[in-house]
């Protein structure tokens, strides 16, 4: 009898393992292996032709002493903060506004979500024309008595020309996430607070924010990863220019690997990108963990 039970359990577990197998194989081959291989390539010199040649830390030394790469890191940070601080703040405001009894709130929610489903390739094409020297945005600026801004041709304006469409596109996603979080907060909490004489701001500070914290954490993690690994907006709107003003890490990896044929150097950049994401995620975890306890 006990032997039979063990074999039933073992058989169940074998099935359980079998169920995980497709995913494990796919992840093993197409994620874990390339990730490990990135570390391997990062200490080699390789141009897609021939065999990789071991070069030690040369690729890392090259990147870390490269002023261009330092600028790339700054650009990435600028984009991540410039896009996602406003996005998270505005999304929270939008979610609060839509969580009231305002009429048509479902229509507003749908409208705000439209940019989320449009592919970046299309978003970039439209905004490039909007940012054209004689385009709608510059026409509006002239009407308002300002000078035209060479959005995509100036090193100071181009970073914003990438950030503005990003905010437009990302806002709806985070609004919906925050709104879902707000809707999990029982109304009775607010009613109790009102009876205790708390104002709207106090209710927000002492009820909404603490209860929304898990969602805020989730959204910030997603936003940080999205911001640091950003590729498409820069690639399709500015190609990283002018003069490298919008060149972010992922664009630099792409260019170094595929236009310059420097696979090893690109892999070293990838390792750094991986490290940055890891550090940011761990830091957030730490901050969140401490707050909760």
């Amino acid at each position: 009898m006990p032997r039979l039970r063990i074999s039933v359990r073992a058989r169940q577990n074998a099935w359980g393992f079998a169920f995980a197998l497709p995913a494990v194989v796919l992840f093993g081959v197409f994620a874990v292996y390339p990730i490990l291989r990135t570390f391997y390539l990062s200490v080699h010199r390789y141009s897609l032709v021939g065999t990789p040649e071991y070069v030690g830390a040369a690729n890392f030394r090259f990147i870390l002493t490269d002023p261009g790469f330092a600028q790339t890191l700054r650009n990435t940070g600028f984009y991540a903060l410039g896009t996602y601080v406003p996005v998270l703040a505005l999304a929270l405001v939008m979610a609060l506004a839509l969580n009231t009894g305002v009429p048509f709130r479902n229509v507003f929610r749908v409208i705000n979500f439209i940019p989320v489903v449009i592919s970046w390739a299309i978003v970039a094409i439209v905004w490039k024309i909007l940012f054209h020297h004689q385009g709608l945005i510059n026409q509006a600026l002239v009407q308002l008595g300002f000078e035209r801004i060479p959005w995509l041709q100036s090193t100071s304006a181009a970073p914003w020309a990438v950030i503005i469409p990003s905010i437009w596109k990302e806002l709806g996603f985070y609004t919906v996430i925050f709104l879902a979080g707000l809707q999990t907060i029982p109304r009775i909490f607010y009613e109790a607070a009102r009876i205790d004489g708390a104002g709207t701001l106090q209710a927000f500070r002492f009820i909404t924010l603490p209860l929304l914290r898990p969602i805020l954490f989730f959204a910030t993690i997603i936003a940080v990863i999205e911001g640091v690994k950003v590729f498409i907006p820069q690639f399709v709107m500015t190609g990283g220019g002018p003069s490298g003003a919008t060149k972010v890490i992922a664009v630099s990896i792409y260019e170094t690997a595929f236009a310059f044929g420097r696979m090893g150097r690109a892999a070293a950049m990838s390792v750094l990108l991986f490290a940055i994401v890891l550090i940011l995620t761990l830091t957030q975890n730490l901050v969140y963990g401490r707050d909760r306890s």
Binding site: F30, P34, I35, T38, L41, V228, K229, A250, I253, A257
Partner: peptide, 13 residues
């Protein structure tokens, strides 16, 4: 780990 960080070996694979 963003795809962008291991796209090079993935592409080679």
């Amino acid at each position: 780990i963003p795809l962008e960080a291991f796209i090079v070996p993935l592409f080679i694979l």
